[in-house]
Design a binder for these strands. Structure first.
Length: 106
DNA sequence: TGTGTGACGATCG
DNA sequence: GCGATCGCCACAC
């Protein structure tokens, strides 16, 4: 992690409790770059500290799971999240109303 | 130092 | 409602 921004991203992701998720956009906003959602994704892709960086808890703003999930695939990611208590809708997306950790946390 | 790229997100047609 | 396009910004080369 070179910048404070990147550092903040990992810090925030690590801060997500079990059974909760967050979005790239929310993390980017919380890290100080409201339009840096893309950078968040790219940063997590680099994944400096996979041991303490639960990137499976980071999803799209609409609740969709990230593409190219490195831990095994979108199906595995959904399974892990369900196991942790994250609620999924019948659309196969995360219920952001319940599980969005940073929702209204600004 | 400059250019290209991408785990996003919003807007346009 | 869905696909295509643009903008954004850190990082790799």
């Amino acid at each position: 992690m070179a910048n404070n921004f990147t550092k903040r991203v990992f810090e925030l992701v690590r801060e997500i409790p079990r059974g909760k998720v967050s979005t790239y956009g929310e993390i980017a906003m919380a890290a100080g770059k409201p339009r840096g959602a893309r950078v968040v994704g790219f940063t997590l892709h680099r994944n400096d500290d996979p041991e303490h960086t639960p990137c499976h808890r980071v999803v799209f703003k609409d609740g969709s799971l990230a593409s190219g999930y490195v831990f095994g695939g979108a199906d595995v990611q959904r399974e892990i999240l369900e196991k942790e208590g994250v609620v999924f809708t019948k659309n196969g997306k995360v219920d952001m109303k319940i599980c969005n950790y940073l929702h209204g946390n600004f």
